[in-house]
Amino acid sequence: MTAQSHIQVNRLSVHYGVGGSLFGGGGVLKAVDDISLEIPRGSFFGLVGESGSGKTTLGRAILKAAPISEGEVRYVDEEVDYDVGRLGKKELKDYRKRTQLIFQDPYAALSPRMTVRDIIAEPLEVMKLTKTRAETDERVREIAAKCRLNLEHLRRFPHAFSGGQRQRISIARALVCQPKFLVADESVAALDVSIQADILNLLKSLQKDMDITFLFISHDLSVVAHTCDYVAVMYLGAIVEMAPSRRLFTAPKHPYTKALLSAIPSLDPDDRGRAQKLEGEIPSPLNKPSGCRFHTRCPIATARCAAETPEWKAHAPGHFAACHFAE
């Protein structure tokens, strides 16, 4: 299979109006600011960044769950070619079958009043993908087995399950309509370490099995390093660096990526205090710094960084960074 792109994002911006009154005024919050990227078919694409970097908004805009203010999102598979921002009602319904979202908190994402079977069957029923109840049950059992759920548990209610089991139920529900593209937004962040590895392995094996493309959103760089093929690093609504996963973690170019990597607490007790610490906190997206948006916290910033926006430069095949001083 060639590395054909599945999702193309071209100069996408998502703007929200904030403050102000009925008569205007107030500012515009650019949650996603002029982002372009391509997600290859069958890849596990990671999106990392701190809170407020816009990674969730980008994921939602691709699913048309956040407004596309400028630019375009294109979805291509062997059957359809959609301009996601301009979908008609019927096409949008079809798009919803092809794409799905897995949420962060498995405790909040499942209705306590529905049995596991009904939770997993709901997308099929809402989208009228099956004709009979027997057919629905068949599909539910099939996907539940794939997600390693005990079939006897289908009759129970979610409160009886642990975090890891609930997350497997959420995954089964997202996969039951056989989507081609899945956004996993911090899907392991709420899980314990001993369970997290299990869910990550499950997602990887489902991806191979069902030929799904993943957009994996996470704040945890070590998790992303272990699961994703490509990684994009976001800061204040823009992508500052993008590379094949191994390259990004072994040869990062952007000072922000370097700082993020060195901020991960080392497991070596004798390796204390070596981290290259970032000063300050992420600025408000309402009031973005001029020039390079990272210059207020960057350890190597110069006057040029405050004045000029850095170019998006290629450093190696598939490895891009936006920094004046990236070698």
Partner: peptide, 14 residues
């Protein structure tokens, strides 16, 4: 079970 940056080739063992 902890994903480690130094050992990207090793599979995660839950």
């Amino acid at each position: 079970a902890l994903p480690k940056l130094e050992k990207l080739d090793e599979p995660l063992t839950p």
